[in-house]
């Protein structure tokens, strides 16, 4: 195989003709945008679902909400992400008669999808907070919701931050499928470079290295966060 030739072609397209610019400014930016905003939506929605899951079930409303959440989580964990993207973009939007860009659709679907996973992580986090915290809040006359919001959820989030970091890494990698609905992410921009000369060897190799570096940097960030959290636990 002509490695030197393949490398020369890639070098020409990626460096000399400015392919890197599109990879960074469009591909990387979109990948991060989908993962970061998706995770944020996931955390907000996932926390709500988890709160419903751990709610006492004496009354009818929490029981109905609980069923809805179970179906939701079941759907999003039971179907592939690609299927969710395709269904939303090609079935749901036309049915609803709305036009939403493939990038925004990706953000929404990633958010809804990660909510299902975050809700399970968050449920564990909520259960890890000592029950006495809720009792103390309620005994003071605070409502269930207020005690959740001000006391239990902040402590739960602190406990699950490292796990959320892993969820973020998973989301970053999962973004590589958004080209199914024609969104442009890292993977897509490297494919485009390959498409110019139908020469994919180097672009895809470089792409893999790019992802590894990206994930490595994020794991370093997550580890640093974990360390600083543990430190604040000691000093408390």
């Amino acid at each position: 195989m002509d490695f030197a030739g393949k490398f020369k072609v890639f070098w020409e397209l990626f460096i000399e003709r400015g392919g890197w610019e599109r990879v960074l400014k469009v591909g990387l930016v979109n990948t991060l945008l989908i993962a970061v905003l998706g995770l944020l939506i996931g955390i907000v929605l996932g926390t709500l679902i988890a709160a419903v899951k751990v709610m006492p079930k004496y009354k009818l409303l929490p029981r109905i909400l609980d069923k809805i959440c179970t179906v939701y989580v079941g759907f999003f964990r039971g179907t592939p992400l690609v299927v969710q993207l395709l269904i939303t973009y090609y079935v749901l939007w036309p049915l609803m008669g709305v036009t939403i860009t493939s990038l925004n659709t990706s953000i929404i679907v990633f958010g809804l999808n990660s909510a299902a996973y975050v809700s399970e992580i968050m449920r564990g986090g909520l259960l890890s907070v000592d029950g006495g915290q809720m009792e103390a809040g309620r005994a003071l006359g605070l409502s269930y919701g207020t005690t959740m919001l001000k006391i239990v959820i902040p402590q739960a989030i602190k406990n699950i931050l490292p796990t959320l970091g892993n969820e973020f890494i998973a989301l970053i990698k999962d973004t590589s499928v958004v080209s199914f609905i024609a969104a442009i992410d890292l993977t897509k921009t490297f494919t485009e470079i390959g498409n110019v000369r139908y020469e994919y060897f180097m672009p895809y190799l470089a792409m893999a290295v790019f992802y590894i570096i990206l994930v490595f940097l994020i794991s370093c960030g997550v580890k640093a966060m974990e360390r600083s959290l543990r430190k604040s636990d000691r000093s408390h």
């Binding site: 000592d130 915290q133 009792e135 103390a136 809040g137 005994a139 006391i151 902040p154 402590q155 602190k158």
Partner: peptide, 11 residues
């Protein structure tokens, strides 16, 4: 109410 395990808000 005052509890056996204090239950001060840790955060």
């Amino acid at each position: 109410m005052v509890f056996q395990q204090f239950n001060l808000f840790n955060n």
